[in-house]
Amino acid sequence: MGNALIVAEYKGDALKKVTRAAFTFAKEYTTKQGGEFHILVLGHNLGAVVDECMSYGAAKVHVADNESLANYLAESYAQVVAQVAKDSGAEVVGATASAMTKDLMPRVAAKLDAGMASDIIGISDEGYFDRPVWAGNAIVSAEITSPVKVVTVRGTDFEPAPKGDAGGEKVEVTVSVDLGSLKKRFEQFEEVKSDRPELTEASIIVTGGRGTKGDEGFKLVEGLADLLGAAVGATRAAVDAGWVPNDLQVGQTGKVVAPDLYVAAGVSGAIQHLAGMKGSKTIVAINKDEEAPIFQVADYGLVADLFKALPEMVEEVKKAKG
């Protein structure tokens, strides 16, 4: 019976909330298929993150803390993940899907000559993995036939694992990465700073599309978002126009989100955009074109000019909140 090893992702000193979706996946998998749930955390000067990893009920937490892992490179990280996967008897190696793990995990899979399923949303009784294909218009049940299986898990489809009692065994990993042999060098990380919540962590998202027509319209989107304590999202059209950073793009090629409330203003509802948000609990669409496809997925549609509707909404929400 193999184990399920999860690669944890963190920011600063704290685990990312989405990473806990993969913990839930691992618990579910090992409950169904047997084996133990393990966590691997990699990096340098890992402080509080390690302690945090210890409190999710994992049998083992593998800690790879080494100067050579100070900056993320797929080439070095994949070496360590593959090594720990072998040493820990992993049958499944997984992580919550993110820009980092989408880059990393296929490389790990190739190292292990393992089959991989991306963005899984569930596990069937046979141990197959359900995953969206064709921009989420179909769900396929994928069987991985290799002895080791690699997956990324959709953060919107597994609950974040709750904290439990600290326990389990901490295992120090001996890291032997030779940075000089990687043929790649990390140069710099250019952070896009924002005081708003992260898209994948927010319970409310207000998204602006091309209909915002630029900075002025986007200010209205941001104004409503700030009032609601929401994250700001965008369509590809809005990002391409340069109104907001690409980090905010929701959709097939951007982030997949499923907040309690998703407000889309000036968004047409293209297939690729819907792929990233149609799992939201409540969807509001504000569009001046009553034929816009976004209305077909919206719980509440408002046919209106966003330049009038958004400021009015700010006033009404203020009143409603008293």
């Binding site: 769900i139 396929v140 994928a142 069987e143 991985i144 036939t145 290799s146």
Partner: peptide, 12 residues
């Protein structure tokens, strides 16, 4: 030879 085999397709 495939390491990932697609079985059934469903509609979301």
């Amino acid at each position: 030879s495939p390491k990932v085999v697609w079985h059934k397709f469903g509609t979301p």
